[in-house]
């Protein structure tokens, strides 16, 4: 219980957050952070704990989002049904994929997930009679205020953290880690590696699909390039996992916070700080700097990938644990 005191205290802070911070912009950012906690936990489960790196989380995310969207758009049901079904449909995609592709190992499996991502995006683009193609799907949001979305996102984030915690302290968790450390050795001591990799993938897909259907409900608009995006979803999920700490339960939560903050700082030019500086100084140099920094947010993303891998391969949480252990 003692180990959980910190996270519990933090949870109380998060519950109080929208009551204290009334600015909808910061509430919006926190909703994104919580959504990424769920996606990051999913990625961390299959990649960080089980060692099967996925480059195609967007496939599951997009499936969840499209499930919610199509329920509302085609069947006239509430998109909130998607929260229940989005994860399940993501698992329906993940199951045959894993069945076929888990015969591949390491980097080749990663490639197969990348291909799945592309196939899903092309399918969503081409199959216009079902998905409206590039036009996208627009639904009416249920709530005007951001607070209900915030609490739903918080619930999803907490559920994903708890489920990862529960799974990883159970027998399954040890199977997952043994597969990551040495698949042949795991197989030789009688672990059905194919089966447990499937379990891990399906759990991860479920969490990611859940986050996807939340995204649909919250944002109200999706198209194939948004939800099946390789850079904005799949790579972001990897970054969230790696920055936070590969193979740690709370790593994705830290990573989600850092990554959303970083991408937002660059997208908005330091929360509009640079623009204020430009106005204050009036120098043309600052105008240029502001313009370039806003344009360069994908570039910084790429640079971040490079630096994180080179200097922080085990993430903030992992790196901190390691340095504490060595003392």
């Amino acid at each position: 219980m003692k180990n959980h005191l910190g996270p519990l205290a933090f949870l109380l802070v998060l519950i109080a957050f929208p009551l204290a911070v009334r600015d909808p912009y910061y509430q919006h950012l926190m909703i994104l952070v919580l959504m990424w906690v769920a996606i990051g936990s999913g990625w961390n489960l299959i990649a960080g704990f089980t060692g099967q790196v996925s480059f195609g989380d967007a496939a599951f995310f997009g499936t969840g989002a499209y499930t919610a969207g199509l329920l509302a758009h085609k069947l006239g049901m509430s998109a909130w049904w998607g929260l229940g079904l989005g994860g399940i449909f993501a698992v329906i995609i993940a199951f045959p994929f894993g069945w076929i592709c888990f015969r591949l190992r390491g980097a080749y499996f990663a490639l197969a997930t990348l291909a799945l991502n592309e196939v899903m995006r092309h399918t969503a683009t081409i199959w216009e009679s079902l998905t409206e193609g590039m036009v996208g799907i627009l639904i009416m949001q249920t709530f005007v205020s951001k607070i209900p979305y915030y609490y739903i996102a918080l619930a999803i984030a907490v559920v994903s953290l708890i489920s990862v915690q529960v799974v990883m302290s159970s027998r399954w968790g040890y199977y997952f880690v043994s597969i990551r450390e040495d698949q042949d050795a795991a197989e030789s001591i009688g672990i059905d590696t194919h089966y447990y990799k499937m379990v891990s993938l399906c759990l991860a897909a479920y969490l990611t699909g859940l986050a996807g259907s939340l995204y649909m409900n919250y944002m109200g608009f999706i198209d194939p390039t948004i939800v099946f995006s390789l850079h904005d979803i799949s790579i972001m999920a990897i970054l969230v996992g790696i920055v936070g700490g590969v193979g740690t339960v709370y790593g994705p939560a830290v990573g989600a916070f850092i990554m959303v903050a970083v991408s937002e700082v660059f997208r908005t030019g330091g929360f509009g700080l640079l623009e204020k500086l430009t106005a204050a100084t009036g120098s043309p140099v600052m105008v240029l700097v502001t313009k370039y920094i806003k344009e360069a947010h994908v570039l910084t993303f790429g640079l971040l990938v490079i630096f994180v891998i080179l200097f922080l391969p085990n993430g903030v949480v992992g790196g901190w644990r390691k340095s504490r252990r060595s003392h």
């Binding site: 790196v53 390491g106 990897i238 590969v246 570039l299 891998i309």
Partner: peptide, 20 residues
């Protein structure tokens, strides 16, 4: 590092930087 796919991920980062 825990994950051996770091190098593949690194090439993704390089790809993003070159494109941008």
């Amino acid at each position: 590092s825990i994950l051996p796919e770091n190098q593949v991920l690194m090439t993704v980062g390089i790809a993003m930087v070159l494109t941008e």
